[in-house]
Simulated scan of single mutants.
Amino acid sequence: MSRPLSVQLYSVRDQLTADPEGTLRRLADLGYGAVEPYDVLADPEGLRKTLDELGLSVSGAHVVQLLGREPGAALDAVAVLGCDLAIVPAGIPPEDFTTYEGLARTADRLNALVGAADQRGLRVGYHNHWWEIEPRFEDRDGPHALEVLAGLLDPAVCLEVDTYWAAVGGADVPALLRRLGGRVRALHLKDGPGTKKDPNVAVGGGTMPVPEILAAAPDAWRVVEFDSCAGGPDALFDELAASHAYVTSLEAA
């Protein structure tokens, strides 16, 4: 994998609020070469300037505003950041992943974004949680809801698979990634005890089969994320540093 390791900025949301430039500099000092913003409308020009000064690229952006009535401004902001991947991270009711009708509605909402994204040189993506994985169709060993959705999506719509949430939802994550194949453009790498509420730990320090996951999606962006972390800010940055060291050691092997 030749791309730099990325980090989802939601991981350091409190630190960004207090000290945006200092937080980004600290991530760069840990060795991260890219970031994945989650608040693209705040000041995309200012963020792009700071990232350029620090030598950080943008792997993609989480843009919940894409599901609003006027997604154009959000797409424009993503384009300003210099990446080509605009990811819907939330905003679709979990119950829509429990029926074929709900999945069809979800696909229609995502497919409707393709034209406007393409005009800006962007690609739309979708990021999963556990509730897109837990429902299975046909029988208890049938495809996960996310797989059924993938079959309904325009080929231009890609996936960012949150590998931890996929495991929490009951998936064999490497096998899921192999079945989804080239639809997967990015991975969220996180680790922990495999539960819905407990804090995350450094990638490589929990239950996730990280080497097998990376091997199953060799061309996808690797994006480290912490939904939460036990301890204070210093503990979080220690865990981010350990995550970086572990993932980069696997990629170099």
Score class of each variant (00 low, 15 high):
R3L: 13
L5P: 05
Q8I: 02
L9A: 13
D14F: 13
L16F: 10
L16K: 03
E21V: 03
L24P: 03
R26P: 12
L30I: 11
G31T: 09
L41D: 13
A42W: 14
E45R: 14
E45H: 14
E45G: 13
G46Y: 08
K49S: 15
T50Q: 10
G55F: 11
L56V: 09
L56Y: 12
L56E: 13
V64L: 05
Q65E: 14
R69L: 03
E70L: 01
A73Y: 01
A74M: 14
A74C: 12
A74F: 15
D76Q: 03
D76E: 03
V78Y: 03
V80Y: 02
C83A: 10
L85Y: 07
V88N: 08
V88W: 13
E101V: 15
A104V: 14
T106F: 05
T106Y: 02
T106V: 08
A107T: 04
R109L: 06
L110A: 08
L110M: 07
N111W: 06
G115Y: 13
A116I: 02
D118C: 04
D118S: 13
R120W: 14
R123A: 10
G125Y: 04
W130D: 12
P135H: 08
F137M: 14
E138F: 15
R140E: 06
D141H: 13
G142F: 06
P143R: 07
L149P: 05
L149H: 08
G151Y: 09
G151I: 11
C158M: 07
E160Q: 08
E160M: 06
Y164D: 02
Y164K: 04
P174M: 11
P174K: 09
R178Y: 09
L180A: 10
L187E: 07
L189C: 05
K190C: 00
D191Q: 00
T195Y: 05
K196L: 11
P199T: 01
V203A: 01
G206F: 00
P211V: 15
E212F: 10
I213D: 01
L214H: 13
L214S: 11
A216T: 12
A217W: 08
V223L: 11
C229M: 05
P233R: 05
A235L: 01
F237I: 06
E239H: 04
A242R: 06
S243Q: 02
Y246V: 02
Y246L: 04
L250E: 13
